[in-house]
């Protein structure tokens, strides 16, 4: 079974995000970029499936700017076998919407015929939480989102999902799409020898046009603004003072 893992290049999760003064977006110039943390978990899970003999090949895919090549090299260094880069944007400021990403991925799925697509539940830039579900819809496949436990067994998968009330376990027919949540695994760090080896692994470069997908956004970004700031508070010296302040504020 092949496993396909889409990965997104996003602002590093430790970087403080700054809104551009002219309201056109978030400042991504000279900012550290990394693999979306949820996608790292998906890559790790795919590699573990291969190590357990349940997958034969792990293919990483990234859709966006050319620099996403670096993100794919990270996936290859972690243990993916090969990579596909789909260049769909000229500028880092151009975010390809989940619907367009899902359409391109659907074409890649047709070509590659994976038994499983493992993806992050959301990207930490647009926080949309949509690509996996959309891809599943376009393919007419089952979906198992927000996974914290995955057990692949032949033509089905048993997946435990993190939901508002606690945990839900479902059984889905394969091929399937699983979107992963934080607690599925802890991704490995790529070792230096593996980083060197990754440079020699195959990386195909394509464009959105190769797949005949129109990536024109459906959502026009009218403006991007700073969230409202909270007024500065005060420090209290003791529990007694805290209780007094809370009572004055009518909070308790």
């Amino acid at each position: 079974m092949k496993v396909l893992v889409p990965v997104k290049r996003v602002i590093d999760y430790n970087v403080k995000v700054r809104v551009k003064a002219d309201g056109t977006g978030v400042d991504l110039a000279n900012v550290k970029m990394s693999m979306n943390p949820f996608d790292e978990i998906a890559v790790e899970e795919a590699i573990r499936l291969k190590e357990a003999g349940k997958a034969d090949e792990v293919i990483a895919v990234s859709i966006g700017v050319k620099q996403a090549q670096e993100t794919l090299r990270t996936a290859l260094a972690m243990g993916a076998d090969r990579a596909i880069l789909v260049v769909a944007a000229d500028s880092v400021d151009q975010d390809i919407e989940p619907l367009a990403v899902a359409k391109i991925l659907a074409k890649i799925v047709e070509e590659e015929q994976p038994g499983l697509v493992l993806c992050g539940k959301q990207a930490i830039d647009n926080d949309m939480n949509a690509t996996g579900q959309m891809l599943s819809a376009l393919l007419g496949w089952s979906q198992a989102t927000f996974a914290s436990e995955v057990d692949i067994d032949g033509d089905s998968a048993v997946v435990t999902r993190e939901v508002d009330g606690g945990l839900q376990t479902i059984k889905v027919a394969t091929p399937t799409i699983i979107s992963v949540d934080l607690r599925l695994n802890e991704p490995r760090y790529a070792s230096l020898p593996n980083i060197m080896k990754a440079k020699k692994k195959p990386l195909d470069e394509k464009t959105a046009a190769d797949y005949g997908v129109d990536v024109t956004p459906r959502l026009e970004v009218v403006k991007t603004s700073e969230p409202s700031e909270r007024a500065a508070g005060i420090m209290v010296g003791s529990v007694d003072e805290l209780v007094e302040k809370l009572k004055e504020a009518g909070a308790v």
Partner: peptide
Amino acid sequence: IYAGNAIQT
């Protein structure tokens, strides 16, 4: 977006 560090219209 960005964990609430920006608001997009």
